[in-house]
């Protein structure tokens, strides 16, 4: 095996005046790519309260409680402190009422600040619009 003294040196000198590979993070941010799994969000107008997301969430981060039975009002709480950002809720939702945004800076001083509440009226089930991606659904 051949040995080469100071084999790394040419590469080092080449990089001395090159742009750095790191970025000055809090001041300069990289953009998340298309399809990034950030924070889950609910589009309340589409939700039919089937609770598929609650059942499938591996972190038990979604909670749906009835607020008023007569008005068909419900409250969904997304516990972002528990969320593992797997986007299974998006896959499980039969009406595309769940989505993921690109938010990833979720640090907070209190875990309760990370809770997001949605209070909404249950919508009537509409047949699912066929979309281009053939994402699989698990059936019951």
């Amino acid at each position: 095996m051949k040995i080469q003294i100071l084999a790394f040196l040419p590469e080092l000198l080449k990089h001395l005046f090159r742009k750095t590979a790191t970025v000055d993070y809090p001041f300069q941010k990289l953009v998340a790519p298309e399809g990034f799994r950030g924070t889950p969000v609910l589009y309340p107008e589409k939700c039919i309260v089937c609770k598929a997301c609650v059942r499938d969430c591996p972190a038990e981060a979604i909670e749906i409680v009835p607020v008023s039975e007569t008005e068909k009002k419900f409250k969904m709480t997304i516990h972002n402190d528990r969320c593992v950002h797997c986007a299974q809720c998006v896959d499980s939702c039969p009406t595309d009422a769940m989505g993921m945004n690109k938010e990833f800076e979720l640090a907070a001083f209190d875990r309760h600040n990370l809770k997001i509440d949605y209070v909404y009226v249950k919508s009537t089930p509409v047949p699912r619009t066929p979309i281009a991606t053939n994402t699989p659904k698990t059936e019951n």
Binding site: L12, H15, L16, R18, T20, A21, T22, D24
Partner: peptide, 13 residues
């Protein structure tokens, strides 16, 4: 700073 630049980093900033 030099060590950082050799490693393509920023160093103290």
């Amino acid at each position: 700073k030099l060590y950082a630049r050799f490693q393509n980093r920023m160093g103290p900033l």
